[in-house]
């Protein structure tokens, strides 16, 4: 049932993550297409955040291989890289389920920190910057332009000089996405970006994600509970339950997959057939 992806940005092969006696991710394999929005869904505690933490280097997987493929053909084995090198070198950026902003810094400063590595090189690792060399000034201007661009796209320009913790929840979510985009990622991993958003904000988020995929050529890997978001914008959905992949396909396929329905309704495996039957009956009647 594995979905066929011919040009993946990310492949995960036989990923296992064990915490003591708990196998939080159990032999998971999947790929995410380069310009796709791939959604990772599943009930609470299914291991979705753990998968993200393995991809972005915050956990070292117990077993398995995670590869980022760049367009030039370069491959990065993420499970062997330091966490900070994954956004820097492999160009995989992420956001967090419980938002992590630099609360005491302004919106603009948050976006500038997102461009740290570019600016660091431009400032000749501080020595050029301290003497105000023109190369750094130019780089800083460009960084400012990129920050302005993303503030514009997320509608945060009017809050540019406000502290990040001053923003309402929905804008904080957007800022976190904008900040991740400032690292110029090839893959953006979003952990429940719509959690806590009202329907209007959730709609805006959909638009933003579609824009990122289309205009910025960035693949998106998305954890989401909001079925409106998932079914509305994903190209490809992977369903996890108890760390195992139980389904993998297009939104249409997933919508009609009995095991997914069973997982969400909390039905035991033996009863799946029964549920399936009921669904078929429901469909025919």
């Amino acid at each position: 049932m594995a979905h066929l992806i011919d040009d993946p940005i990310l492949t995960v092969e036989h990923l296992n993550m064990r915490f003591g006696g708990l196998l939080a991710v159990d032999d998971l394999s999947f790929s995410a297409g380069r310009r796709d929005i791939t959604a990772l869904i599943g009930p609470n505690g299914a291991g979705k955040t753990t998968v993200f933490n393995c991809i972005t280097g915050f956990y070292k997987p117990t077993e398995g291989r995670i590869t980022a493929h760049h367009e030039g053909g370069e491959k990065y084995l993420l499970e062997r890289m330091d966490d900070f090198k994954i956004p820097k070198v492999a160009k995989v950026a992420r956001t967090f389920q419980n938002i992590r902003l630099f609360g005491g810094m302004t919106v603009l400063e948050n976006l500038m920190v997102g461009q740290h590595n570019t600016l660091m090189i431009a400032s000749n690792f501080t020595f050029g910057g301290i003497f105000g060399l023109s190369g750094y000034k130019r780089a800083e201007k460009e960084a400012l332009e990129l920050a302005e661009y993303w503030m514009e796209q997320t509608g945060l320009t009017y809050r540019a000089d406000d502290a990040a913790s001053d923003l309402p929840y929905g804008e904080q979510r957007k800022l976190e996405i904008a900040r991740a985009m400032c690292t110029k990622p090839k893959l953006l991993c979003l952990d429940e970006p719509a959690a806590g958003l009202n329907p209007r904000e959730s709609e805006e988020l959909n638009k933003l994600l579609l824009f990122i995929r289309k205009e910025r050529d960035t693949g998106i890997l998305l954890i989401e509970h909001d079925m409106n978001v998932v079914m509305g914008i994903s190209d490809h959905i992977i369903v996890l339950d108890y760390g195992k992949k139980i389904a993998d396909g297009t939104p249409e396929e997933i919508r009609n997959d009995p095991s997914v329905i069973a997982a969400y309704l909390g039905v035991a495996d033996e009863e799946v057939e029964e549920v399936e039957h009921e669904i078929e009956e429901g469909a025919s009647s």
């Binding site: 900070f84 956004p87 956001t95 902003l101 630099f102 920190v113 997102g114 740290h116």
Partner: peptide, 14 residues
């Protein structure tokens, strides 16, 4: 300053 605010977020930005 970002380090003071949130170390994990720092690492997630490279």
């Amino acid at each position: 300053e970002a380090l003071r605010e949130d170390e994990i977020a720092c690492r997630s930005l490279g």
